[in-house]
Design a protein around this nucleic acid. Sequence first.
RNA 1: GCUCUGGUGGUGUAGUCCGGCCAAUCAUAUUGCCCUCUCACGGCAAUGACCUGGGUUCGAAUCCCAGCCGGAGCACCA
Length: 510
Amino acid sequence: MLAELDADDEEDEHVLPDLPNAEEGAVVMRAAPNPNGPWHVGHARMPAVIGTYKERYDGEFICRFDDTDPETKRPDLNAYDAILEDIEYLGFEADRVLKASDRLDIYYEHARDLIDAGGAYTCSCSGEAFSALKNDGEACPHREKDAETVHEEFDAMVAGEYSAGEMTLRVRTDIEHKNPALRDWVAFRIIDTPHPREVAADYRCWPMLDFQSGVDDHLTGVTHIIRGIDLQDSAKRQRFVYDYFDWEYPEVLHWGHVQVDEYDVKLSTSTIKELIETGELTGWDDPRAPTIQSMRRRGIQGRALVDSMTDLGMSTSDVDLAMSSVYANNRDLVDDGANRYFLVRDREDDPAVTLSVVDGDAPAPEAGHPPLHPDHPDRGDRTVPAGRVVVESSDLPSEGERVWLKGYGCVRHTGDELVFVDADIDVVRDGDVDVIHWAPADEGLETLLRTVSGDVRGYTEPAVADVDPDAVVQFERVGFARIDAFEPAATDEPDGPTGEEDLLAYYAHP
RNA sequence: GCUCUGGUGGUGUAGUCCGGCCAAUCAUAUUGCCCUCUCACGGCAAUGACCUGGGUUCGAAUCCCAGCCGGAGCACCA
């Protein structure tokens, strides 16, 4: 008992480190997704960590869509809501939701202030030409333009008088800075392609991430920025702007990239999008896709993913997330509530076989009655009709040997029959007879189970029909699965539901 | 090439700032045993790591130097 109490006290032993200079009630953080698609598993880290800190410090969680590139990273109009839903599934809610594409005029205003402060100049160098100069630490001729000209040219940029590539607005940093990545970076450029959002479709002069994000972080009162190591130089770049405006830069934490094992698919929005377009994946919730929507459809609780993500800590080195850790977390959450059912798989290398259960030294009962949950007898039993049954061939004992049909009784494999044996459960306890799962051949539900490694067909016991869709069950000796739908409609997917199935389920994990 | 940044068991993590309590924590994984009418849950046990080499020190995962290996930026992507 004491040991139990101690264990409870140490519950929050391996939580995230404290934030630097964090004041209770005054912590503001933001997730700044690019809405170019629904989220993959790696994206869960940001809301998981921000949400956890928000709870710890009674802070604020801003979701700001950094959708400032209508061309290369073209926003997907469906992704805005998809991402908010992903966040909700993870168990969090943004206190404020902003879209950068609503805020162009704010950025222009700050650009003009920056020009006034001598912090920016319009530049018509080609990318290559400027890069060459910059790498030698040499300024381009445009750097010394007077403010009036810069204003005129920037106004012309905003007015849409230039085409892509003709003019940029650069921040005047230090052209000889020892880190070439920080020298006079581009703050605004021209993009000819209209933004997909109607309200932003008329703009042609778009800010780059470092400008837009830097301005917004200040304006929205962000106190702590968490971002990937790919943006390690951003703070240093943005600091030049902050210095011109005499703003104080927030605290910054970086973390490394997340890789996930178990999947063949790369953790990349564009890769997944491609695979969906070419039909190799059926959608964002395909169980083979390493996406949040897929986790959700498989019955993995957002909480399990969040726990795994916060366990990764805040290290700046790259990390591999083992899916087994997500599964372990999910099992913790789901095991108690998941009622047990039988699913007999019918696989090519291990087909289901049909046999009749017949009277032996005692009459064979008509049905088996295994409990819904071994730890909760009060939930009652299921009824699994016997008679003709299916079992997985690898479970079938050799000719003449016995096996125990779980919840039913002992049978002996005799030819194409299972002959009932009047034996006590002690034969199982003594280790002489194995226990296997089974399903009625005729009353069973024809089932399609979709898994990370492909679809599996099989037969579930009829009692599963009582389960509400969306519930997570455990197919005994197979694993946990989410009941997706009964009588699923046919799809044109090569392996998808044909319309013949009684049940569609998604496999979660063992 | 220039500039950042990091290297603790299979995976993640604690410890590193302020050297000794670290023959290195916890979780997960794997294996074995127990429990069990599941290969789930629960219990027990085992396996397994401080990148390398120097230096400082009575003492180094922790400090210093060098090397090796990795990640990132040097975009009119985010």
